[in-house]
Amino acid sequence: MVVLATSARLDVDDVLRISWAQPPADGTALVLRQKATERSVSLNGDSADLSGLDLTEGAWSVHAAAQEVHTTDPGFSLDGLVDYARRPRSRAMHVFRGHSGGMRVMVRTVEPYAEVTAVHPDEEHLVIEGFFAFGEAPAKADLVAARRKTKELVMGELTITGDRWRAELPNEPFAVESDRGFWDLRLGGLMVAALLDDIPQKKNKVRFPAEHVERGGDRVRVRAYYTDNDHLAIATTVVANEEAS
């Protein structure tokens, strides 16, 4: 017999709430398993409090009465991931359905950062919007783009409303010299990234339009992009006028 859930959601207090299609024969405990490591948690009817469990990073499979728990619930909503991240915490978990149908709990160590929700490039500026995830708004409110290797800086303007922020970087100061440059962003000292949209490794999946800063005989192309870690960064490239597009 299969143990099957039709709904499995983790609330903001890390309590796993389950609706059973076929409940486990012995519905008293859940076991989370990662390779040889097991953690047991009591199952109180349809809920299990995972907040006190010692769980290392990575995916944990879920078992009950010696069987793997299957689920027909994708496990999370995109709005739910955002609500969850609005609370300060150092460990973030979410439930998802594995490829084979098994229920999984993903555990990550997190630190406060600036989650990106929208990027708006225009002729003059790069506007970025988002909210503060897993922590409070920082005391020092500025946006800095630091060029890798040379550490040249471009400063942006930042507006904070509650836990939401809006940053504006001018394009022109990025036209610094005649080769390629990569600029990392820090917002009030925090990393700037998009980690809550369920699009991992989005470097080639989400691409932003380029803007150009005119110079004498050429232009500098300024384009926001996501790094291999899904952090938002800025790439600058010098292009001859006829190549600019």
Binding site: H99, N204, V206
Partner: peptide
Amino acid sequence: RALRLHNNVAFMGSTADMENVLAK
């Protein structure tokens, strides 16, 4: 990008897990 859809459209690549993708 020309249609300014960069905040709304993602090109996800291939998936071997169509059923989970659709269910979201």
